[in-house]
Design a protein around this nucleic acid. Structure first.
Lengths: 145, 145
DNA sequence: TAGCTATCTTGAATCATTCACGTTTATGGC
DNA sequence: GCCATAAACGTGAATGATTCAAGATAGCTA
């Protein structure tokens, strides 16, 4: 049994210094297969895979995975937190003002967009978060009719 | 009495189609003199000027003023909403991860930074919001000691 | 001045998220 | 393979920002 099932995901968790539990493996897979899911949706996905998991365990695991950089948390103003598995690159997001759907975008201006502001006010900046606000194709169509 | 007190602020409210009340004049002045205040701080500032105002009235007025573009709402992930009176330009914000303080910054790349993404996913984008995350000078110093 | 309606008030409700604490379980050493 | 320990998890309650409801008050226009 050197190579058992889902070796990669489990190894990633272990490599990050986290214990490997069925819930966390399922959570990481759910987040990666999903598309900017919120906590409820993630809990639901995890339950589909491993049975019962409490909401608090999901919150706790999301914190842990976010802290070690295996998932990324995004929280558009006015809505609940969402999570994605695409980490390490510097992509940004478009959010629909009407339905709240989130999509990934790469920034227009190269590798590290806006990462250095013209005047950093003395702050030591480690991340530039960009959110584009607008209407998704569906809501855009619906609105013009 | 053609030119009474605080003519400008009142006129701005009226011009935006809003009724002029003491509370709203005080609120707009408070927001403009303040520095990214939260709702509690704004309510407190308004009360200093006009006596009692309910929190709900403050929320309602902030919605109204935000809707007509007289104030701008910002909501960094994980904290309560904050409001500022600087509107119309396209400045952005630096947020301290440690103490949560917010400061204004102008973007590095000219007038409308990142306003067009490389691939807009079919969205009709009307705003690009940029938040720089890091440590403010004070927290930065405190942390290294 | 009268009437209409926006605005304000009081009080309760909602929702995401967190806190407390007892129980279970993964993991490294024996 | 077995144990101890700390990490994970479960249950249940609490927090805090924001919103909703409905009646009272007060700008504004005719």
């Amino acid at each position: 049994m050197t190579a058992s099932r889902t070796p990669t995901t489990a190894a990633e968790l272990r490599g990050a210094g986290l214990r490997v539990t069925a819930a966390r493996v399922a959570l990481l897979e759910t987040v990666r297969e999903g598309d900017h899911l919120d906590v409820e949706a993630i809990a639901s996905g995890v339950r589909d895979r491993v049975g019962h998991v409490s909401l608090q365990a999901v919150y706790e695991a999301l914190h842990a995975l976010t802290a070690v950089g295996l998932v990324r948390r995004i929280e558009p103003a006015g809505s609940a937190a969402r999570f994605e598995g695409r980490v390490g690159d510097n992509h940004h997001h478009v959010v629909c003002r009407s339905c709240g759907v989130v999509a990934d975008v790469d920034c227009a201006v190269g590798e590290a967009p806006c990462l250095t502001s013209s005047d950093d006010r003395g702050f030591s900046i480690d991340e530039a978060e960009v959110i584009y606000w607008g209407l998704c194709p569906d809501c855009s169509t619906a609105r013009s009719s």
